[in-house]
Amino acid sequence: MDWSIAKILMQDGLVTGVIYALLAVSLVLVFAVTRIILIVQGEFVTYGALTFAVLADDQIPGTRWLLVIAGLLVFVRELWLVYRGKPAVTLVRSALFCLVLPVAVFLAVPAILGTAPSLWVKALMTLFLVVPLGPMLYKLAYESMADSSVLALFVISIAVHFAFVGMGLAFFGAEGRLVAQPFFDGQLDLFGLTWTYQSLFVIAMTAVIIAALWLFFGYTLYGKALRATAVNRRGARLVGISTDMSGFLTFLLSSIVGVLSGIMIVSFISITYETGFMIGLKGFVGAIIGGLMSYPIAAVGALVVGIIESFSTFWASEYKEVIVFALIIPVLLILSVTSRHDEEE
């Protein structure tokens, strides 16, 4: 291997690594606020990528049916909770989010596709189709179990993951999809390498998303509420912060990050209904490097994962997954020695 090949491998690793970095930051966010290891984060990537690919082919994705069904289930659950004593005023918000929004999106998708929209409009449609599934998932699967142990929440995540994989096969089929049409066409010579505008767009979008999250957590009331919940869940309740609201908002942010990641990555690799699991696991490796606590370290660790994966593909492609996931072993050993926790924690 010479330096020119090494630079190309680093370039490829950087482009995929920034996607892993987004997922790692999202996983750390969800775990810090809700104590949930969100295995299904990879499925948000898959659903976002495949929904966008179906729309790019001017077809109607099956996820518009999933959105309506999920919204109806959540609203029925809210009716039951109101019957059990929850304030009825919450039904108005639930009706808007769970019934009006899904039905509006369901009707709007074929109408908008009939106007031959641009790729940007199709990406926006993908966000409206898939992102609401995140908060709905929290309402259906996690909210009533929010105070359970980390192990119980982990078991729920495994069950949800298998459910989403099965639904992905039903809605999208077994064949992989790739969006050949990029958002930006062309290329640029930079640092002795040829960069496509699409790859630079992915890197820039990642930087924008991370910066937006930093501004949200540092300068908004809701962001500070999530930080407070992450620091002390019981203390947040005592000062009037709703942990249910925190979980809802966290899953909303996580689904946005996952769907955007899927929209960006489907331009580089073919995505099938089960690809998101491996992508999510590599983001999880980055999150583990950050100890499921540090956003910057998790992002940097995910970038390292992408670069190591790229070099592993060149040197020993059949062992690339083994090499990537083996990174967890020394990290866990270091964390087990350096971390401090009491028996109650």
Rank of each mutant, 00 (worst) to 15 (best):
M1L: 10
W3S: 13
I5K: 15
A6H: 11
K7G: 13
K7D: 08
I8T: 14
G13T: 07
G17M: 02
V18E: 00
I19T: 08
I19S: 05
Y20H: 02
Y20F: 04
A21Y: 05
L22I: 06
R35M: 04
I36W: 00
E43V: 11
E43K: 12
V45E: 03
V45C: 01
Y47I: 09
Y47V: 09
F52D: 03
L55M: 01
D57Y: 09
D58V: 06
P61R: 01
P61N: 03
G62F: 03
T63C: 07
V68P: 05
I69Y: 06
G71Y: 03
L73V: 09
V74C: 14
E78D: 12
L79F: 08
Y83L: 10
K86A: 15
P87R: 06
V89C: 09
L91D: 04
C98F: 01
C98R: 00
L99A: 03
L107R: 05
L107V: 07
A108G: 05
L113M: 12
T115C: 05
A116K: 15
K122T: 06
L124W: 09
M125H: 02
V130I: 10
L137Q: 14
E143I: 04
M145A: 13
A146D: 11
A146W: 11
S148W: 10
A152I: 10
V155W: 03
I156E: 02
I158A: 03
F162V: 10
F162L: 15
F164K: 01
F172V: 02
E175L: 09
Q181R: 15
F183H: 09
L188H: 11
D189T: 12
Y197T: 06
L200Q: 04
F201L: 10
F201R: 00
A204E: 08
V208D: 00
F216T: 07
L221D: 10
Y222W: 12
G223A: 04
G223W: 01
K224Q: 11
A225V: 05
A225R: 07
V231E: 13
N232K: 05
A236K: 06
R237T: 07
R237W: 06
R237F: 04
V239W: 07
T243Q: 13
D244H: 14
M245P: 08
S246Y: 07
L249C: 08
F251H: 07
S261W: 00
S261M: 01
I263M: 09
I271Q: 01
F277T: 15
I279D: 01
I279C: 00
G280W: 02
L292I: 05
M293K: 15
M293A: 14
M293S: 14
V300D: 02
V305T: 09
G306Q: 00
E309D: 14
S310L: 06
S312D: 09
T313F: 09
F314I: 06
A316F: 11
K320F: 06
E321Y: 10
V324N: 02
F325Y: 13
V337D: 04
T338L: 13
T338K: 15
H341T: 12
E343K: 12
E345H: 11
